[in-house]
Computed example of a mutant assay.
Amino acid sequence: MSFYIGREASKLWKRICAETVTEINLLAENWKYILGGLICQYIHGLAARGVHYFHRPGPTLQDLGFFLLPELGLDKAYISETVFSFIFLSFILWTFHPFFVKSKKIYTVLIWCRVLAFLVACQFLRIITFYSTQLPGPNYHCREGSKFARLPRPDNIMEVLLVVPRGMLYGCGDLIFSSHMIFSLVFVRTYNKYGTKSFVKQCAWVAVVIQSLLIIASRKHYTVDVVVAWYTVNLVIFCIDKKLPELPDRSNGGGPLLPLTKDNKSKEENLKLMNGNYGDSADWRPRTQINGKVMEDGNVVHVEAVINGS
Rank of each mutant, 00 (worst) to 15 (best):
N275V: 03
I290H: 11
L247R: 15
E71M: 04
V236L: 00
T22E: 15
L214V: 03
H302I: 02
M274R: 14
A117W: 02
M1K: 13
H221K: 06
K293F: 11
Y53C: 01
K76M: 07
D297P: 00
R287L: 10
L247P: 04
V188Y: 15
M1Q: 12
Y53F: 12
L125F: 10
I215P: 02
L185A: 02
H52T: 03
F124R: 07
A121V: 12
Y140S: 10
N30E: 05
V300R: 01
C142L: 00
E19M: 11
L135D: 02
I182M: 08
V227Q: 03
Q211I: 13
F86M: 14
N277Q: 07
W94D: 05
I182H: 10
L151V: 01
G145M: 00
S198G: 14
V188L: 08
P245E: 01
I182Q: 10
Y140L: 07
V101Q: 12
P57F: 01
F91D: 05
V160Q: 01
S132R: 06
P154G: 00
S218H: 07
G36S: 00
Y170H: 09
D297I: 03
D75I: 13
C40W: 10
D75C: 08
L35E: 01
G276L: 04
V209W: 09
K197M: 09
P245V: 04
W94A: 12
H141F: 15
G279V: 02
T82R: 08
F67E: 13
I106N: 04
K265D: 14
S218F: 07
E159A: 04
Q211L: 15
R56N: 10
K293G: 10
L273R: 09
G6C: 06
P259D: 09
V160C: 02
Y4Q: 13
C40V: 05
R7M: 11
Q211H: 15
S281K: 08
G298D: 03
A229Y: 05
K265H: 13
N299R: 11
V186K: 02
Y222A: 00
T196I: 10
F199A: 15
L89Y: 10
H180C: 02
N139H: 11
R143M: 04
I111F: 05
R287Q: 14
H180G: 06
K220V: 12
H55G: 00
H52I: 00
K76C: 09
E246Y: 08
G298N: 04
V101G: 04
K293I: 12
L72F: 05
N156V: 05
G50E: 01
D63F: 04
S146L: 01
Y33W: 08
K147P: 05
I87D: 03
S90H: 11
